[in-house]
């Protein structure tokens, strides 16, 4: 299941560079001591862009929710239908969520609440992307 390639832009380049290095980083506002994802030019709480940094995460989380995609609008993924798309909440902060195809997990047999760990998967242009797998 190969995802579309990613063309990092100025806002998200640190996130994607870290993924290529096998690290998961999330934007953090030093003034608010608050993580935010997706990345933004300014802190969604204090509005300042001056105190944003990239903070490395443990790469552990929980499956919060999931759906099964049967009619995908993205051409490159249509041959892989149906597939899971889960929402992962990070252990560091459940308010931070990421999507996952949960590689290796049977379709529509997703244990909500299960622990997961990050892995990094190459997309169509070689850029790596954080993905998640269930851990015992």
């Amino acid at each position: 299941m190969v995802k579309q390639g990613v063309l990092p832009d100025a806002l998200t380049k640190p996130f994607w560079d870290a993924a290529n290095d096998g690290r998961l980083v999330i934007q953090n506002c030093k003034a608010c001591n608050r993580l935010q994802h997706p990345p933004a030019p300014a802190c969604s709480q204090c509005g300042s862009g001056d105190n944003l940094e990239w903070k490395e995460m443990s790469g552990r989380g929980k499956i919060y929710n999931y759906g099964v995609v049967h009619d995908c609008p993205v051409r490159l993924l249509q041959d892989d239908q149906p597939f899971n798309v889960a929402v992962i909440m990070l252990d560091e902060d459940p308010g931070i969520q990421m999507y996952s195809h949960l590689p290796g997990t049977p379709v529509d047999d997703v244990p909500v609440g299960a622990s997961v760990e990050v892995m990094f998967e190459a997309t169509a242009n070689g850029q790596k992307v954080p993905e998640w797998r269930i851990v015992a």
């Binding site: 390639g5 806002l11 995908c72 609008p73 999507y99 195809h101 997309t123 169509a124």
Partner: peptide, 23 residues
Amino acid sequence: ANAEDAIDGTSAISRLWGTPASY
């Protein structure tokens, strides 16, 4: 963008997983 082989990094954060509008 859904028909492209690659998309920009900001969009990719939420769109790489191919979710339809009702997801």
